[in-house]
Write a protein that binds this DNA or RNA. Structure first.
Lengths: 148, 148
DNA sequence: AATGATTATTTGCAAATCGCAAATAATATA
DNA sequence: TATATTATTTGCGATTTGCAAATAATCATT
């Protein structure tokens, strides 16, 4: 049987490097964590600080400061929630959306290229496998549950 | 069709969190990068600094300092290579091996638990899928090749 | 063998990141 | 109204990062 952990380690490290390399867009440089933050904000509808920080497994204080940086860069907007003014709601500015979209396109292109080395059947099998894996990871009681 | 990038993002983030949570063993705390370094040294036969740094996509100077920390902690040994004394050869001490092994066991246990939510057939399909994916990522010309 | 070019690793340094503890500000509860 | 709880921010010190430059060993050329 395969060394499963090794397979995971290589795969996730490769994907991590890809993300890292995709962080320089049009003269705007953002860090890897900032890229993840933009991604999560883009994906959700006006999430709160806590929500995003938790999904990313980041300490809320570190997250708070990263958001401050992204606001300074003009990529993220913070809006107080009217019905509970303790919470701030996050959204992307147009520039932030542009950056997030560009990163997304690059990563998808890479994945397409990777899949181009497979048959259509293999590709579908792989994608279904990852989906199943995510579902089962979500069911696991051991670790890292919040994420989705 | 599924949002493939999203699937990858969730999966790799979960696995990343798992690694992060596995870094405290028996009173010895190591950081996530340090855990990756131990893993790679353990996997190889007396690799050089450069080799490991490159595989991990780390700046060599950052890597050098991390190795110094691990040596101070008594987890890693640096030996100059007799035939070329510029290069240092890395290996784990007994304590380092113990830490690496313990981390490995924990991660494997988690993965086993995840797979326990699948049929044997699904499990094998998923593992074969990840293997295929790694092979195709290795073939890709776009990004992140060195890794393996 | 002497010189300069190349290679592996380390240090100086300044910036970025991190996370705990404490502060602030708003809401919920009694 | 007083108190507890919750979301976010700030103080602070420790750690991590990566570029440029230093060091140290080997290689290439003469």
């Amino acid at each position: 049987m395969e060394n499963v952990r090794e397979l995971f380690q290589v795969m996730t490290r490769r994907f991590g490097l890809l993300n890292k390399n995709c962080c320089s867009i049009d003269g705007v440089d953002i860090s890897l964590v900032q890229s993840h933050i933009l991604y999560e904000i883009d994906k959700r509808e006006y999430p709160s600080m806590q929500q995003v920080a938790e999904v990313l497994g980041m300490d809320i204080t570190t997250f708070s400061r990263q958001i401050q940086n992204l606001v300074k860069k003009g990529l993220v907007k913070k809006t107080p929630l009217p019905e509970d003014r303790r919470v701030y709601t996050l959204s992307l500015t147009n520039e932030g959306k542009f950056i997030a979209t560009t990163i997304d396109r690059e990563i998808r292109q890479y994945l397409e290229e990777v899949f181009s080395h497979m048959t259509e059947f293999e590709k579908e099998t792989v994608i279904r496998s990852i989906k199943l894996l995510n579902e089962c990871m979500g069911k696991s009681s051991v670790c890292c549950k919040p994420l989705f």
